[in-house]
Design a protein around this nucleic acid. Sequence first.
RNA 1: GGAGGAGUACCCAAGUGGCCAAAGGGGACAGACUGUAAAUCUGCUGGCUUUGCCUUCGAUGGUUCGAAUCCAUCCUCCUCCA
Length: 408
Amino acid sequence: MTLYDELTARGLIAQVTSEEEVKDLINNGKAKFYIGFDCTADSLTAGHFVALTLMKRLQSAGNTPIALIGGGTTMIGDPSGRTDMRKMLTKEDIDHNAECFKRQMERFIDFGEGKAMMVNNADWLLNLNYVELLREVGACFSVNNMLRADCYKQRMERGLSFLEFNYMIMQSYDFYHMFQTIGCNMQCGGNDQWSNMLGGTELIRRKLGKDSHCMTITLLTDSQGNKMGKTAGNAVWLDPNKTSPYDFYQYWRNVGDADVMKCIRLLTFLPLEQIDEMDGWKDAQLNQAKEILAWELTSMVHGKEEADKAQAAAKALFSGGGDAGDMPSTGLTDADFTDGSIGALTLLVKCGLAASNGEARRLIQQGGVALGDEKMSDPAAKFPKDRFAGEGVIVKKGKKVFHRAVLS
RNA sequence: GGAGGAGUACCCAAGUGGCCAAAGGGGACAGACUGUAAAUCUGCUGGCUUUGCCUUCGAUGGUUCGAAUCCAUCCUCCUCCA
């Protein structure tokens, strides 16, 4: 099976500029492709994960990935798929974020000599001369066409600033620049980037009369069409300090039935034959598929050891018994106790399980909190200090959130 | 530059002097049911030392016994004209 066929079978490919030529490039290790990452936060997210795996897949077939850090484009902000303007970031933030991205990517991509590259578009975008750029590049873009582009559609109703309107031009310039300077011949990205990406091939054709290619990856959406990789509006981060391996594991452990197999295909490196076998699974077996998905992904992002720990902790907590040593915990100090005991509300807030005393009270009143095995019912309850000695006590919020409170 | 319109909680959105900590919906969270899923039903959704108090309806001042609501100034966004 060729690489292209595998990517298709996994459902990764959304659109390509020319199927024949892209096949030829990637199947034969001739692609020198880039994926751009705008550094709007200090960690990559589960949303970037698909792109990272794609890079890895292409790299192991002999193609050369170029990870483009958007130090320059982030200064502008991509309006694609946004209903409002992005927050403007300072140069310092962007530099810091770029640095964090780099460290995370190194886990997935081999940046060894000649194997892959990492570049930052701040290096060429920030010093552009406005008038020169307009004459050189701006002349090649038709505003009429740009306005028709998908990525601006939503914004046409709510307003689009000139700053953001230029994003497409910057992205196109990136491709054009790298095509000339380092021989980058293909661009990959999320399907929402399609029109921005075409801008680049168009520019290259007009300026240089050469062909270049684009391939977009299916966006990771659930069966309802919502973007995946977010919980309660918060991204699932790849940085263990922002999303613990346990939470990361749990996120995938809890995907909907309808989405498991899709995620396994798209995100894991399990052989297709094995995945095909799982295809007919349902009920209890399908539930098991979620475990496989969660373990595979956690192991890729955080390593086998962390994946095992997360899995063991989850099993212990949900199936009862066993050691649940790896759950998040909070150390209580003497200052947290008054007269040798701590109030239920304080405890919940202290552990980060409730944002305020009011919320903590509500949770208890609704029967959503348990300390050890006993359900809490009285918001005014107090617990003596010695309960938290030694191993501490497991505080349970709802069915899935566990937290250890221990005397420190 | 000119003329209009809008800014309300996590999001959408009602409210146009007291009955407003602010309808309704979505989302989130919790309970029941389950498989750590989905669907469904129920509760809940500013803070606090909670039969009460405090802060909140773009910002700042003002009118009033009393303001999300009226007035002034400012900020932001949208639409039309140029």
